[in-house]
Design a protein around this nucleic acid. Structure first.
Lengths: 211, 211
DNA sequence: TGGGTCATGTAATAGGTTACATGATTGC
DNA sequence: GCAATCATGTAACCTATTACATGACCCA
């Protein structure tokens, strides 16, 4: 019986830390794997119900400290087995849909300045993201014992940093290229000295836009 | 009236090259923006129908050279306006869901070797991707006139190359870190000289896995 | 008393994949 | 003849977001 990604996120979180409620799972996703994953309540709560019904997780007494009592969950043995099996099967990577790149690709049709604006926006967001990731890194204890999951967390964090930094570097050079290549709206006679002029290129058999 | 991303992809493609059929649109997506976007026939054909009904595109005589006649489409003026408007609104970037990173993050629960296997797999896929992108780049004419969309294509291609290269570099160092950090299954007494030992770290307020 | 956050959930809708059906043509 | 590719489309299903409903507690 195939299960959706949300289910595995839940199983994974419970494998790291028992007794989580739907609410804190959502928060945990945002706070730890938010760089490459997202879950909404509309996904989590139904999944919790289903997983309970199927015996992969079980309700554990929700501690109600003054507040509304939280329904908490723990992994069952079946749940742990299920998680392990899923972890072992090869991942599939569909191309991540990137609306920013989509708009950039079609940007010739846009009003002048639109592409540059998106690029600035992109750059800014990456700058903030890199900041966030660095803060996370700084908040991690470098101390010896730590916890057994930490090596893997460090790897994903490192990935986030590396890719964000690369995106940032690219967007800076892209901005330069763009302003250099587009001095006026009608570049027909000698586009005045491209400054950056990095040799990049594009496009395969290109059904669309044969050159 | 809000439209789905697929619609804008169609409008965008037709803005670059008129007279495309659903079939070649799919191919064009794979061949040009496949690095960061995907569309299935199940999305494209209904979208074509709807866009035609709404007057954003129109059927253009499908040329039937021996084969089954293809239904081709062109942009209408309303379609072009609609595309322009969409291009101008800020993009929203949801975190791209990355199953590889998800499995890596939870990998402590997996059987030994699983994380390393995924990493090798990831590395290999990125290597192939970089190859593909380089081939695309090589096939682009460096000649002067070219076509007006090319600067934007070059930017997205450059992005793909930069990010893939960064992912590749990361995965190589990650593999080294992983093998260094995990000599046996129970690293409790002095994990023998980590070789790479790049200072990375992880995790924010971390509801899950407080250290 | 009003806004923020804690906390759980449902319903409507949108977005997207997969499998299937159909049939022609090309190349081995 | 058979497999692959061209080419269009539909139906069933899964995935996911958004808005909404509910209510308590905290703090200013």
């Amino acid at each position: 019986m195939p299960r959706n990604p949300t289910s595995y996120v839940i199983l994974g979180l419970l494998s790291i830390h028992p007794n989580l409620s739907g609410y804190v799972m959502r928060k945990a996703v945002q706070g730890s794997i938010g760089y490459f994953w997202a879950e909404s309540y509309g996904q989590i709560y139904p999944a919790l119900k289903r997983l309970t019904r199927e015996g992969l997780i079980a309700k554990s007494g929700g501690e109600s400290n003054g507040r509304r009592p939280r329904q908490e969950y723990v992994l069952t043995e079946a749940g742990r087995r299920c998680l392990r099996e899923w972890l072992a099967v090869p991942f599939h990577d569909e191309p991540p849909k990137n609306e920013f790149l989509l708009k950039l690709f079609f940007a010739r049709e846009a009003a002048p300045g639109v592409a540059a604006a998106h690029l600035r926006d992109f750059e800014e967001r990456n700058r903030r993201m890199l900041d966030t990731l660095n803060n996370i890194e700084a908040s991690v204890p470098t101390a010896r014992p730590s916890n057994p999951h930490q090596p893997y967390w460090l790897l994903t964090l490192g990935f986030g940093k590396a890719l964000t930094a690369a995106a940032l570097a690219w967007s800076e050079s892209a901005r330069a290229e763009l302003t250099a290549a587009k001095p006026s709206a009608a570049p027909s006679i000698r586009p005045p000295k491209k400054r950056v002029a990095k040799k990049t290129a594009s496009s395969r058999k290109h059904v669309v836009g044969k050159h």
